[in-house]
């Protein structure tokens, strides 16, 4: 039987990209978290049969995720047909090609860019992404409409996107 730690050792670095891939298949943070958990459970139980000669571990995980998203009968029905099969393969390639170095570099740049935002703007991002607040909840907190909150977040993402690209290309 393969070691727990061997599985964790291989799974940990692939997790972030797997998570992104799953979010592209099932674009809902909460459902994607559940699906990731299912993929991890399946990968663990099938880890014995994983043959590194035949496939890369990350690619093997992506395959499990794709199958889960396509065939899961219990959940994800609302969004499981969002992407067609060609799009799924393209998405897989996109996230497989995103190396850990790239994503670390992006994350560092993002942190620097966010540091330049005002406290209010940071608070809005934290409310949305960390505290998982809906736009109407943020609207209450920030005394504006839900639509205005969504627009403000859109603008922030736009500013951050440009900032991150600039920092990485320096």
């Amino acid at each position: 039987m393969k070691d727990n730690t061997e599985f964790i050792r291989q799974f940990a670095p692939a997790q972030h990209h797997l998570h992104m891939y799953i979010r592209s298949l099932v674009p809902n943070f909460s459902d994607a978290d559940d699906l990731l958990q299912e993929v991890a459970a399946t990968a663990w139980t099938k880890f014995e049969s994983f043959d590194p000669q035949k496939a890369e571990f990350k690619s093997w995980l992506f395959g499990i995720a794709r199958n889960k998203a396509l065939h899961s009968k219990r959940r994800f029905l609302r969004t499981q047909n969002l992407l067609n099969e060609v799009q799924m393969i393209n998405a897989e390639q996109f996230f497989l090609n995103d190396s850990s170095i790239n994503s670390d570099e992006r994350q560092d740049a993002l942190s620097e860019c966010i540091n330049n935002l005002s406290d209010e703007q940071k608070k809005l991002l934290l409310g949305r992404y960390r505290d998982k607040k809906k736009s109407y909840e943020l609207a209450d907190l920030f005394k504006r409409s839900a639509e205005q909150v969504r627009i403000q977040l859109f603008r922030l993402r736009k500013v951050l996107k440009v900032c991150v690209v600039e920092k990485i290309s320096i």
């Binding site: 972030h16 992104m20 979010r23 992006r106 994350q107 991002l125 992404y129 960390r130 996107k161």
Partner: peptide, 21 residues
């Protein structure tokens, strides 16, 4: 479609940043 994937990537990066806070 590429914009969609990049957007998912950015949302994921933001989520990772926010969770680390």
């Amino acid at each position: 479609f590429e914009f969609y994937l990049q957007s998912i990537q950015q949302h994921s990066d933001l989520k990772e940043w926010a969770d680390s806070q």
